[in-house]
């Protein structure tokens, strides 16, 4: 593994190796000194063309716990908005000697371009590209499911995961579908038909338009953020109607099996796709997802950079 661009590139063994490594590295968090010397002298650049404080600080914490030097490069305004081009930014980072570039970009495929164009030599980690993928989010989600429901070991064989919401525009959903399938889980996507992409029937998952029906046997329900402006493009009639049909409220939550988890990649629209009392419920593991994000990103950095000469 040279880059992490898409969860479709991961075999089950590779995915499990990341999760197992993350489990080992998680123990660092329990120590008084939360730091390993593994990546001392290595430089990790956080290249963020989109605002995303939570993802950026998660990667930053992960890199710092491994003793890497971290440069935050907030390139708001990509070539899409007449700023410096992705190519020139990449060449600049190469000249500065970046060992790994963590990239968040509004254009689908931007991480792929960075990794395959020959502009830089370092490892590229996709921290979210447009509406394409967000592989470390899927890995931290899988980690969280495995930790809570499978004793933090083995695959997710047979686990029923329901992903609800704006699949069309969601990089989280795409990365999760491929990874969860690789790990043996059964995925069901629930959304209004307008928010499912053409061709979704070829994905390795079930489709259901009825949330109440889908969640009865769910081990995990993952709610996706729905942006209100979608309403203006006629994807659904109103926030209230969306919320009634596809939101998770306390009443719906009670129909879940007792052990089932509620997840959300954040940031949440409380009252829209998820009710406040659901977000704060005991079965909600949303903050665990955040914690696990650091472990998983440490594992990815460790596996991509750890074997190389400093």
């Amino acid at each position: 593994m040279r880059h992490l661009l898409s969860t479709t590139d991961l075999t089950q063994d590779e995915a499990l190796s990341i999760l197992d490594t993350a489990r080992e590295l998680a123990q660092v968090a329990d120590r008084p000194v939360k730091k390993l010397p593994t990546l001392r002298g290595r430089t990790v650049v956080n290249l963020f063309f989109e605002d995303s404080t939570r993802t950026r600080i998660s990667f930053e914490a992960a890199a710092k716990r491994l003793s890497a030097d971290v440069i935050n490069f907030s390139a708001k305004g990509s070539s899409l908005s007449k700023g410096e081009s992705l190519k020139d930014t990449a060449l600049t980072l190469q000249a500065m000697g970046a060992d790994a570039v963590v990239i968040r970009h509004g254009a689908s495929g931007a991480a792929h371009r960075l990794a395959t164009s020959g502009w830089i030599r370092g490892a590229v980690i996709n921290a979210g590209d447009g509406t394409h993928e967000h592989p470390t989010q899927a890995l931290l989600d899988a980690y969280t499911m495995r930790d809570h429901l499978r004793g933090n070991t083995g695959s997710l064989e047979g686990l029923n995961v329901v992903i609800v919401g704006d699949v069309l525009h969601s990089r989280v959903a795409r990365s999760n579908v491929w990874l969860l399938d690789t790990l043996g889980a059964n995925v069901t996507l629930v959304a209004p038909p307008t928010l499912l992409p053409v061709g979704v029937e070829t994905w390795p998952c079930q489709i259901n338009y009825d949330l109440d029906e889908a969640i009865v046997k769910a081990d995990v329900v993952m709610m996706l953020r729905v942006q209100l402006e979608r309403m203006n493009a006629a994807f659904f009639p109103s926030a209230r109607e969306y919320s009634r049909r596809y939101g998770l409220d306390a009443q719906r939550m009670r129909t879940l099996p007792d052990h089932a988890l509620v997840m959300h990649p954040g940031p949440m629209n409380r009252g829209m796709e998820i009710a406040a009392d659901v977000a704060d419920a005991d079965r909600s593991v949303i903050l665990d997802q955040v914690t696990n994000g650091v472990h998983v990103r440490m594992a990815v950095l460790y596996l991509l950079l750890g074997g190389q000469e400093a």
Binding site: R174, V198, W203
Partner: peptide, 18 residues
């Protein structure tokens, strides 16, 4: 729209041109 709307546009996250 960015590419032909079909199975691949959905997977690649590129807006479809039906």
């Amino acid at each position: 729209a960015q590419m032909h709307e079909g199975d691949l546009s959905g997977q690649l996250g590129l807006r479809g041109w039906p």
